[in-house]
Amino acid sequence: MTKIISLTDVPALIGQEIGVSDWITVDQTMINQFADATLDQQFIHTDPERAAKESPFGETIAHGFLTLSLLSAMNYSALPKIREQTMGLNYGFDKIRFGSPVRVGRRVRGRFVLKEARYRGANMLMTSYDVTVEIENERKPAVTGTWLTIVQFDPKDRPEET
């Protein structure tokens, strides 16, 4: 069951890890579909036989951008829902790093630390999360960075600032 919080709860969560996602298996079908969608057909992603022979990884690997894009799904399984939210928007990322390749068949999950939350205008809360995408049973993460998002809400629901 997803935890539901209020806008008034958010400030107390700054600096805390507020979610760890479910594991997601990155299989060859997912990699191939991402390659088709992005037109990135590099053999290290899409050709298992050639990747086994010619790449330093010995098998296919996920695109870094595929791993990054999984943060959206990870968000849904990890982060509490804000009761007053009417819509959520991606705003961008700061300092994305791809630390380790995700080999085909591995599982990944996301960790989310709320770094900052501040109001912008009458109906938006800008949040930033330090995110880490872990690879199961590996020491080095696949992705690290800071993810900026916007929570939109009805202006009448904005808490009084103290």
Rank of each mutant, 00 (worst) to 15 (best):
M1W: 02
M1K: 03
T2L: 04
I5N: 00
T8F: 01
D9Q: 05
V10K: 03
A12D: 13
I14G: 00
I18N: 05
V20I: 15
D27Q: 09
D27E: 14
D27A: 12
Q28V: 12
T29N: 14
I31T: 04
I31C: 01
F34H: 05
A35K: 11
A35Y: 11
A35T: 03
D36G: 06
D36N: 12
L39Q: 11
L39T: 04
Q41F: 15
Q42F: 10
F43G: 00
I44A: 04
I44G: 00
I44R: 04
I44P: 01
H45F: 12
H45T: 05
T46G: 06
E49I: 11
E49Y: 03
R50A: 06
A52V: 03
A52I: 07
P56L: 05
H63R: 06
H63A: 00
H63M: 03
L71S: 01
S72P: 05
M74D: 04
N75G: 05
N75V: 08
N75S: 14
N75P: 00
S77L: 09
A78Y: 12
Q85H: 06
Q85P: 00
T86I: 15
T86E: 09
L89G: 00
G92M: 09
D94T: 13
F98I: 12
F98R: 12
G99L: 13
V104T: 15
V104E: 10
R106K: 15
V108W: 07
F112W: 15
L114W: 11
L114G: 01
K115Y: 06
E116Y: 07
Y119H: 15
A122I: 05
A122S: 14
A122C: 01
N123E: 06
M124S: 08
S128M: 13
S128I: 11
D130T: 09
V133I: 15
V133E: 02
E134M: 12
E134F: 09
I135Y: 08
E136S: 04
N137S: 14
R139G: 04
R139M: 09
K140Q: 13
P141A: 07
A142L: 08
T144S: 07
G145V: 10
D157G: 02
R158G: 00
